[in-house]
């Protein structure tokens, strides 16, 4: 098994409303995967289907090599729901203990792991306090601890940083990095692109229940590059020629800005401009931020 998550044409309808239209996706073992999209795009619905909370209308999926609905495999999955609400009459440590029991952890494992996790999410001092006295961010932290409890192979986090202070966000980032090092796959729904940018290996953009783009994240967002070309003379022939490589072309004086899909065409491009005799003053590829990409992809400029 190399894929922790595999979906084939997954679809979910709520009555008339199509929440997820057609989702085919693979997530590899140990990969940190960001699932991005505007509000109502269907991200949470996908997560619910993967965890068996909602039944797909059509399509199939495998999680950790098992079909949807397999309960035993959930002992190896950690999950922090979007609307994290827990039984608030429980004390923090007791809450983790009960969830450990549900996961089938032995008393010994629980006694070892719970204090560790409480330390990790910086709630060791609040271990004996009832969850009803917790703030939103504290609840989110204890929820994160709960997701890490099984020592999982896959962690699914639905907007884990929505209620956290900057320290809490850094904590989540550190936790994700630790998981990455340990080879645990992470499925992350998030709107905080700056965080996704530094933690994720790969992202998918979903809009209206469809994946419209996936991209690998490196130092640079793979696939999409913006090039600024400065030439001596802009002619209609030159622009027509350049449109072969890009449909998105802006001209500002003698500066031409265009997006290209592949860095590999840059040498070709510069050679062609030189051959045209337009006078090539500068050709500089620009790094495009994830946020920029998000806006373009989601607003359909691509």
């Amino acid at each position: 098994m190399t894929n922790v998550i595999e979906t084939h044409h997954l679809r979910k309808e709520y009555g008339e409303k199509v929440a997820v239209a057609d989702l085919t996706l693979q997530i590899e073992r140990g990969e940190v995967f960001g699932f991005l999209g505007p509000n109502g795009a269907g991200k949470t619905t996908v997560v619910k289907m993967l965890l068996g909370l909602a039944a797909p209308t059509a399509g199939s999926a495998q999680v950790l090599g098992r079909p949807l609905g397999d309960t035993a495999i959930r002992a190896r999955i950690g999950f922090l729901p979007e609307h994290f609400r827990f039984h608030e009459w429980l004390q923090a440590a007791e809450f983790l203990d009960l969830h450990g029991q549900l996961l089938g952890l032995t008393a010994g494992q629980r006694a070892k792991r719970i204090p560790q996790l409480l330390n990790l999410v910086e709630l060791a001092d609040a271990a004996g306090r009832r969850l009803s006295t917790f703030s939103k961010g504290m609840l989110q932290r204890i929820g994160l601890a709960q997701a890490l409890l099984p020592d999982p192979d896959l962690v699914i986090l639905d907007e884990p940083t929505s209620g956290l202070d900057p320290l809490g966000r850094r904590l989540v980032r550190d936790v994700i990095n630790q998981l990455k090092v340990a080879g645990t796959a992470v499925f992350l729904n998030s709107h905080l692109l700056s965080e996704v940018e530094v933690t994720c290996d790969r992202v998918a953009f979903i809009k209206e229940g469809r994946i419209i783009r996936t991209a690998r994240l490196g130092a640079l967002v793979e696939g999409v590059t913006e090039v600024v070309i400065q030439v001596g003379r802009v002619t209609p022939e030159l622009l027509d020629g350049l449109r072969r490589w890009s449909s998105d072309l802006r001209v500002d004086g003698r500066r031409i800005t265009m997006t290209i899909q592949d860095e590999e065409i840059l040498p070709l491009l510069s050679q062609w401009v030189v051959d045209q005799g337009a006078g090539l003053y500068a050709l500089s590829p620009q790094q495009i931020s994830l946020e920029e990409l998000f806006v373009r992809v989601v607003e359909g400029q691509e």
Binding site: T71, F84, H99
Partner: peptide, 14 residues
């Protein structure tokens, strides 16, 4: 309604 069921039903219990 309160979504507390979500963290229970995603555990290895039927």
């Amino acid at each position: 309604d309160s979504h507390t069921i979500q963290s229970l039903a995603t555990k290895p219990v039927r």
